[in-house]
Each structure stands twice: as C-alpha cells, then as structure tokens.
C-alpha cells in the first residue's frame, strides 16, 4: 500500500506526517502567547474562528533551544471528528485543534508501506519515543512522527 507523507524540516531533521492526518498548512503564522502555559505550547492561533493550540516542536522534541529558530510553517492536524472514517492505522489526536511548528516545509512523498522500518531502539538522541518509523531516502532519512507522545498534554 502506498501512503503519502508531507515532509517538514525541523532544523536539519526531516519529519514525515501522513497527509490524511493533515488539515492544512499555514505559512504565515499569527499566534498569541499564553502565560503560564507549558514551554512547548507556542501559543494560540485564530484559524477562521477556531482556536488552535500551536505546539513548538523544537521545545517538545528537546532540540537545542539555543539555536536560532527559523520562522517556519505550521501544520494543522485533523481532529478526531475530521479524520475520515476508515483511515485505519492513523493516530487519533483528540478533539482539540492542534498545530505543529516546523522550521521548513518540504515536498510530499509517496512511500510504500514496506519502505517503513521501525525506529531504531537506540534513537534517543532526537527523542526516540516520538518516532514511529524510519524511511531511508536517497540522501537522507525521513522520520515518521508518532503524534500521541508529541501531543501528550
């Protein structure tokens, strides 16, 4: 089975998210900070009247916080209600609208299910618990993001 992944760069790492889980991608983000929020909550955005919580992945995935963060793009995920019925095997993320902050948007790749390999057991450097699988591309690796731990409130 062929799956399509939208790819995003977070600093130098390439991450993939199944396009069926993505509602839309926002390039120009206007967000509002929330005092007292956990550090990985970047803020809230107004997406056509809906309030979306923006997660700062660099904070969440424990990237080097000192490095200069590039103003990137924001991936709005589908809530459980929006997920198409029968999208089997896809993670559910709950009822709250969430956006993930990446530093750069990449292309959409068609990947065969067989290409996906399980996360290496020792991949703790980038936070192994956030990796669902790894795809070896010609020049680089694409990490498929495990959403549940990322969105663990």
């Amino acid at each position: 089975m062929t799956r399509q992944f939208a790819t995003f760069k977070l600093d130098e790492t390439l991450w993939g998210i199944d396009i069926l889980q993505i509602r839309e991608i926002i390039i120009q983000l206007e967000s509002y900070p929330v005092p007292q929020a956990p550090p990985h909550v970047h803020g809230l955005m107004n997406l056509r009247g809906q309030i979306v919580t923006i997660i700062d992945l660099r904070q969440r995935l424990r990237y080097n916080a000192e490095a200069e963060a590039k103003a990137g793009c924001c991936v709005i995920l589908k809530t459980d209600g929006e997920l198409v019925k029968g999208a089997l095997g896809l993670e559910r993320i709950g009822a709250d609208a969430v956006g993930l902050l990446f530093s750069e948007i990449g292309e959409v790749l068609a990947i065969e299910e067989e290409q996906i390999e399980p996360a290496p057991a020792h991949a703790t450097a980038v936070g192994g618990e956030f990796i669902q699988g790894v795809v070896a591309l010609e020049e680089t690796l694409m990490l498929i993001m495990k959403l549940a731990p990322v969105l663990d409130a």
Binding site: V34, Q36, A37, P38, V41, I51, T53, D96, A97, A153
Partner: peptide, 8 residues
C-alpha cells in the same frame, strides 16, 4: 484545550 489545563 487540554494542553492548557494547568493554566489555573
């Protein structure tokens, strides 16, 4: 949202 439940 559930991410802000601790903001009392």
């Amino acid at each position: 949202s559930r991410f802000l439940k601790d903001a009392v």
